[in-house]
């Protein structure tokens, strides 16, 4: 292949099936370093599954996934994952600082406990998301937006190069949405690569510079101004009709 610079994420011919029911068909996706990419598509398009496949959380039936030319297992340290907010029980007995420190667990490895340095890193990450005043707050007493910011701080503390976020804008207030956008742009400015599962078509052009349109197969991916076209969108959301004729 004629690649000069390594891709941040390189997905080739990825098929994922749950009990022989395909969720993703032969997906190709190249994400160059330093872009802010949103994955867009209708419900059930396989957006979350694609993220989970990149993270090795689901096993593909075919295809390859590389992060900076190496498989995920070898690159774990430079990848950071923000799961959907609804995937955890927010009544769990823990506070904000503790959740953010979980971002250090990967670097700590087995058995070792987080120390003073980890605490400082976590505090620093909390400042970045504007949550430093809430360190000892029990997580169930946070608003949806604040919970999302805690999750982002946990990702920041991993100090990764590649960020994968599943619906970070889901059900957050306007302030948090703006804070997240600023944060994403900061990350890009520092040369990080950010992949975001997104559902609000209105904001794609404002927030992101790359986009992938997905509906079980890849419809298109590339810079927003080239890719986010009415034709491609029609094929993604009304794909059935466009394809049949």
């Amino acid at each position: 292949m004629q690649t000069s610079e390594p891709k941040a994420i390189e997905v080739t011919d990825l098929t994922v099936a749950y009990q022989d029911k395909p969720v993703l068909w032969d997906i190709d996706l190249d994400v160059p370093p330093g872009v802010l990419l949103s994955i867009v598509g209708p419900n059930g398009a396989g957006k979350t599954t694609l993220i989970k496949a990149i993270l090795g959380l689901v096993r593909p039936a075919a295809g390859n996934i590389l992060i900076y030319n190496k498989p995920y297992e070898a690159q774990r340290r430079i990848v950071s994952y923000v799961p959907q907010r609804g995937s955890v029980d927010w009544d769990f007995p823990t506070n904000v600082l503790d959740v953010v420190m979980m971002g250090r667990y990967g670097a700590l490895g087995w058995v070792r406990r987080p120390g003073k340095k980890d605490r400082e890193l976590a505090m620093h990450a909390l400042e970045k998301v504007g949550m430093e005043a809430y360190t000892t707050r029990q997580i169930s007493q946070l608003s949806g937006g604040q919970q999302q910011r805690v999750f982002l701080a946990r990702a920041l503390v991993q100090d990764a190069t590649v960020y994968l976020m599943d619906e970070p804008f889901q059900g957050v207030d306007a302030t948090t949405e703006r804070a997240i956008v600023t944060l994403l742009q900061d990350l890009r400015a520092n040369g990080k690569t950010v992949v975001v599962v997104h559902h609000d078509l209105q904001t794609v052009t404002d927030y992101f510079d790359w986009v992938m349109l997905l509906n079980i197969r890849r419809i298109a991916s590339g810079p927003v101004d080239e890719t986010f076209t009415p034709n491609n969108l029609r094929e993604t959301y009304g794909g059935r009709i466009a394809f049949m004729k």
């Binding site: 011919d13 098929t15 099936a17 022989d20 068909w25 032969d26 190709d28 039936a61 075919a62 197969r217």
Partner: peptide
């Protein structure tokens, strides 16, 4: 049994879709 039967069908579909894409 279905898995065994569908394994080849499914793999064939993956192959043709790959070529088609």
């Amino acid at each position: 049994r279905r898995d065994a039967r569908q394994k080849w069908e499914f793999a064939q579909t993956m192959l043709v879709i790959h070529l088609f894409n």
